[in-house]
Amino acid sequence: MKKKVKIQIISGILILIMLAVSLFPFYYMVVQSLQPWKQVDKSIIPRGITLRSYEYLLNNGGSGNTFMWIRALANSLLVSLPTAIISSLSGLLIGYAMVKIRKFRGQKFIMNTLLFQMFFPGIILLVPKFMITKSLANTYAGMILPMAISTWAIFMYINYFRTLPDAVFEAAKIDGAGPLRIIQKIAFPSTKSVTVIVFLSIFMQRWSELMWDMLISPDISMQTLNVLISNQFKPMGNYPGPMYAASVILTMPIIVLFLIFSRYFKEGISFMLK
């Protein structure tokens, strides 16, 4: 027993050290975003706290494109939310169709298409996808549609529905429930943990997308926060303070969302392993 306690203490210490390493960049980012501008990047402990960097973002330091940072944050939300909603919903419907509608003509063909698509790295499609979407440049549709359906999300739902017993669905069918009612009343509520994971993961991926958004939305008023930071941030030119503040704003919503829903994770992760 004594040995076990010893092991626990040692692992506890090791974990604290590793957590410190793993979370240090966030600490540094937050501290620098709150430092007086003369102190930014000069010390790792705060030498005074000011909101100047955040105020700068509110009106872009009073110059040029006054609301570009706020606009970019709104753009990020307006792109990521619809993408996450469409991906989850379509994943749910297709997953249900592939597993719980036991047989329909063409089911095998669709399954093969899905597997075939998983096979190809997205980079091959970059130029032609850009050509197809070019007429939607600088629109939300141009950013949302090409990434609106995720094969990963579909397979998460397929794996999940495979673990659900058919009996429940059969019983509902015998009771005369229509397919939409079955999805709404039985399938959807039961997928809570998978839906939470799919929704948050897609939201997070879309929120952090760089290459596509840079290509399809070069217009400064249509850039997402992620793109705007990477375009504005030049190590020598700009003030670093606001860049840190913008990075904090870029990072925090996702972390908070995931912390709120973290209890669903353990259950959801098991469907990723299949």
Binding site: L19, M29, L210, M243, F258
Partner: peptide
């Protein structure tokens, strides 16, 4: 486990900002 998971959630842009500034000539 969730705390260790946080870096995964971060956009590469945010971490690149931190790293780039942290490694500039006059950084702390």
């Amino acid at each position: 486990a969730v705390l260790f998971f946080i870096p995964y959630l971060t956009s590469g842009v945010a971490t690149s900002v931190v790293v780039k500034y942290l490694f500039t000539y006059n950084s702390v």
